[in-house]
Amino acid sequence: MPATYEPIATTTLSTAASTITFSSIPGTYTDLRLVLVITGMSAGNRTGIQFNGDTASNYSTTRLQGDGTTASSTDNNTNPNIRITDVNQLSTSLQFITLDLFSYAGSTFKTALAELSNDRNSAGSVYRSVGLYRSTSAINSLNIMLLSAGTMSTGTTATLYGIKAA
């Protein structure tokens, strides 16, 4: 039985940081999966993802979200990143995010499916979002970043997995 779900790299922050980068991603898988647990970050901040160091407005996101009171849907088009979290309301809250990136080594635009779980015991948010990266280049690096000044807390962990179709 071939191994089809393999860890490529993992990072645990030993000091607070504003970004986590996975570079030199091999093109040998079919899909990528990112598993991210943010142990805390500055209140009022958001998190996004860029690929291949591309800071141009080549990204878009459509979200379905709930905050414990209201369900809603929003989008961000022609953006410089794919947004993967809402505005953080509590600096110590845990945010659990997964992102599946399909056919990342192909020559078509890249689609990503992101999931956010952020319950704060009497408040919270839950997301499902689809992102698009309008580039035909294979993805060989991925940058998790805060969208305004601040840091992700010590203990934040990010793991990138590769999934093979065969």
Partner: peptide, 20 residues
């Protein structure tokens, strides 16, 4: 235990939560 959820039933979407 606490949770926040988002749901759909084929005609509407809603969100709710339960603390502690």
């Amino acid at each position: 235990y606490s949770f926040t959820f988002l749901q759909g039933n084929g005609s509407a979407a809603s969100s709710n939560r339960s603390p502690a």
